[in-house]
Computed example of a mutant assay.
Amino acid sequence: MPSTYLIALGSNRRHHRYGAPQAVVQAAMEELAAFGTVTARSPIIATPAMGAAQRRFANAAAVLESELDPPSLLAACKHTERAFGRRPGQRWGDRVLDLDIVLWSGGVWASKMLTIPHPAFAQRRFVLDPACAIAADWRTRPRGLRLIHHQARLTRPRPLPR
């Protein structure tokens, strides 16, 4: 039986064939079909640079139905990143393509190489905003909150310090 995955996509560097980061993310969404059936694609949004990155990012999310287990899907995503020209480098630096497995219909996965849910997804608007556009009601484990609730927690106004 296939599993369902939420995949986050991001780029902030041009690609020699696809061009600007938005086009890189669009091409990568098409490549995900090699791993199963893409059942939903979010709009591609522009987001500010984070960490050591210098350029704005193009970010999106996709829902993928796949026969691959989480480690096999991770290996396929890493292979795709390398095929798009990603090289090992500085954490949170500029990159041609970043593919992250955020959620899995099987719930929680923990190994040396992969943790699902993605450990930082609930603190990242660049993940939650596109994800909520296509899967707002997806319940996350272990707490059972829907993605829309994580987004609300991250974006709700907070009082100014006194």
Rank of each mutant, 00 (worst) to 15 (best):
M1F: 02
L6H: 07
I7R: 14
L9V: 11
G10S: 02
N12G: 14
R14F: 14
H16G: 13
G19D: 11
A20F: 11
P21V: 10
A23P: 13
A23S: 15
V24N: 14
Q26Y: 08
Q26C: 07
A28K: 10
A28D: 07
M29D: 05
M29L: 15
V38E: 08
R41V: 14
R41Q: 15
P43R: 15
T47P: 05
P48N: 04
M50C: 06
A53V: 01
R55P: 00
R56H: 14
A58N: 06
A58D: 04
A61D: 09
A61R: 11
A62E: 02
A62T: 10
D69W: 03
P70R: 01
S72Q: 09
L73R: 08
L73D: 04
K78S: 06
H79Y: 00
T80E: 00
T80M: 14
E81W: 01
G85I: 05
R86Q: 03
R87T: 13
R91L: 01
G93N: 12
G93L: 02
V96G: 01
D98H: 01
D98L: 10
L99N: 03
L99Q: 04
L99C: 05
D100F: 10
L103V: 11
W104P: 11
W104M: 03
G106E: 07
G107A: 05
W109C: 03
A110I: 08
K112I: 00
P119L: 05
A120G: 13
A120E: 12
R125T: 10
C132E: 10
I134K: 14
I134P: 13
W138H: 08
R141V: 11
R143D: 15
G144D: 09
L145N: 10
R146L: 08
R146G: 01
H149F: 09
Q151D: 07
L154M: 12
L154N: 06
L154Y: 02
R156M: 11
P157V: 05
R158K: 12
R158V: 12
P159E: 06
P159A: 05
P161A: 14
R162Q: 13
R162W: 13
